[in-house]
Design a protein around this nucleic acid. Structure first.
Lengths: 212, 212
DNA sequence: ACCTGAACACCGTTCAAGT
DNA sequence: ACCTGAACACCGTTCAAGT
């Protein structure tokens, strides 16, 4: 015979994502989020069983934001590209949350639906079984790997530091030992994350088309 | 006029990596690592300026463990494959550290050297400038993305849970809505992370070879 | 059923004092 | 120069008590 619940789980989810988007990951704690919601830390334990579930909540909120392409498609290649791009854009829309998306496992139904949609598209290439699994792994890895590159790559796409700083850092490298690194650092300055994503994806799709 | 330093930075590095390999990431703290080294927490501040640097130390220790292939190569494709595999194996040798490798940026010289080696191999395909950058991004993303998949994918390669558990979880999915997911779950049972990595890499190398 | 304050065992880090 | 204990402002979480 209890009182009505003070919050819903999706309220928590929205609050946690908003907190991370605004203040970054570091400040997200049971106490801080509770304070944000105008209650005490212990109240949150009525909705999540551990601090870690806050992270899961954030990841699921980001995934829920994927804007799936409608279809149907005539070409499986274009379908793969569009689904991959939708996923990548949703992840990039919440840059502060990317470390969580990379490291937390999610069993949200949205992940299953997105995976099945991608698999359906890839199956259009004639793949099944182990070869379908590999194609799926490769595409997923490319998406997440490129999101990761913006965080932690040796050549951050658009890092916290400004372009001039990055140029200066690479110019400081000895040109005889790192000629190619200096070369692509120059190319990176005139490039964009979106363009690099699309071109990378095209490479993989070409590989998927070559051995169908 | 000081006393001699009690530790070296590489001693800290080794201790931090050993700690993470043994106890996982969660327990790594200034106090715990200091305790491990038989000293007080504040002593560590003579070697690192922040807690976060402990993470950087761990990442660099892992990267230092990459076993670069000797070369020279006749085929750039094989060189790309071997460098990628060396990188991937070093990462996988320290599974507990993977979340750090995915999220921490490293400016270790070893990263620059490894990147330059990969770029040299990729340049063997005739690429330069923006196209070389894209090829580099794609290969790197695939490596890190596949390492990430073992942590957090919707279909963990060899998750904490056992194969039978995973099979059961996917059998519980409605077969009419998730036919492909169920199919690759079956394929994943009879597969290995190494085999999937190599086959994925082959797909991308095929793409790189198709449009040289 | 759901809410919540007090308490406990942890953190990272500042400061001041030691050699 | 390097070392270190005390202290401060945080954590997550258990427990017990409230409605």
């Amino acid at each position: 015979m209890g009182r009505p619940a003070k919050f819903s789980r999706s309220q928590l989810q929205a609050a946690a994502l908003a907190f991370v988007d605004r203040d970054g990951l570091a400040g997200l704690s049971m106490r801080a989020l509770a304070n944000e919601l105008g209650t005490g830390a212990m109240t949150l334990y009525n909705y999540v069983s551990q601090r870690e579930e806050l992270d899961v909540l954030v990841v699921e909120a980001v995934i829920a934001g994927v804007n799936w392409p409608p279809g149907p498609y005539e070409e499986w290649q274009q379908e793969v590209r569009d689904i991959a791009t939708a996923w990548w854009r949703a992840v990039r829309a919440h840059p502060h949350a990317i470390p969580l998306i990379l490291t937390r496992r999610s069993r949200s139904p949205v992940v299953f639906e997105g995976s099945e949609a991608m698999l359906r598209a890839l199956a259009g290439s004639g793949r099944s079984g182990k070869r379908l699994l590999v194609a799926f792994r490769a595409v997923t890895a490319l998406i997440m790997g490129l999101a990761q590159a913006e965080l932690a790559g040796p050549l951050a796409v658009q890092a916290a530091e400004s372009a001039p700083e990055t140029i200066a850092r690479f110019r400081a490298l000895p040109a005889d030992r790192f000629p190619h690194l200096i070369e692509i650092a120059g190319a990176a300055m005139k490039s964009s994350a979106e363009a690099e994503f699309e071109a990378s994806l095209d490479l993989l799709v070409a590989g998927l088309s070559a051995a169908p």
